[in-house]
Amino acid sequence: MRRLELSKIIIYAILFLSTLAVLVPILNLLALSLTAPGRAHLMSGLDLIPKGFSLMNYELLLSNPLITGSIVNSVWITGAGTLLNLILTSMAAYVLARTNFIGKKLVLLFLIVIMVFEPGLIPEYLLVKDLGLMNKLTALILYKAINVYYLFILMRFFQDIPEEILEAARIDGAGHFRMYTRIMMPLSKPGLATLGLFYGVFRWNEYFRATIYISEPSKWPLQVVLRQFVVRKDNTSIIGNQNNLFDSSVNFDFASLQAGTIMIAIVPLLILYPFILKYYAKGALEGGVKD
């Protein structure tokens, strides 16, 4: 009995340490971002409470046009992009999951070929160039407008809608497009929510295509600004000319501003996290290795 308790304590402790390993670095950056300017050097990498609470770092960040502009760009790319994702994916999923037509097998084979044969980076880059989409947010919205894996997941959701409901609508004379908009879509809200989260998280986190397609800083999404600032340590774009806007007696800490930018990039995910836990995991399991 005592041995059993001991092993239980060890297991609980290991798991608790694992959660600390995730939480402490994030909470440390949160605390750092809330630390008053000029005091960041007092913060150690394990401190979870800000030294002198202040929102000044966020005030500076959110008064910087590069950052606010990039937030607007990211919201637009994520919103418009996810909407496009959902429209195209659901249309294709309805047709492929619930109807029969000549050539269906060919289309499914085409999708599998698409899934296996990924084009390389350079031809994709040259295509975007040829289409005149360089330096345009449209290039990012069109990028991955349908993900084949996600399409297959949505097809599985659509297949779960009982045939009788569709049959009833068919008898009432509804055409395929009507059945798709009036029956399939309203009845598949959990499936669409799942896909919306899949696509939305992907869109919000995308940085690489933006790095290579968009050279004009005012069109950068937040992740690219964050990369420029935190990974490439280019501070002039953020504080360089902005410091003048503030009382010169205020010495902003580079580390705190970096931490604040990271936090701004995480916030939308944290807000959606309860929904992510509810829908994402279920959808991922259904789409992943299946029985």
Binding site: V22, Y207, R227, V231, I266
Partner: peptide, 25 residues
């Protein structure tokens, strides 16, 4: 539930954010 909710979280962060966190860590 606490353990699962916490350990799943990093999967949803972008690699840029993760790099930022690790550079600081």
């Amino acid at each position: 539930k606490y353990v699962q909710s916490v350990v799943y979280l990093p999967h949803f962060l972008s690699w840029v954010v993760i790099a930022g966190i690790w550079i600081s860590l």
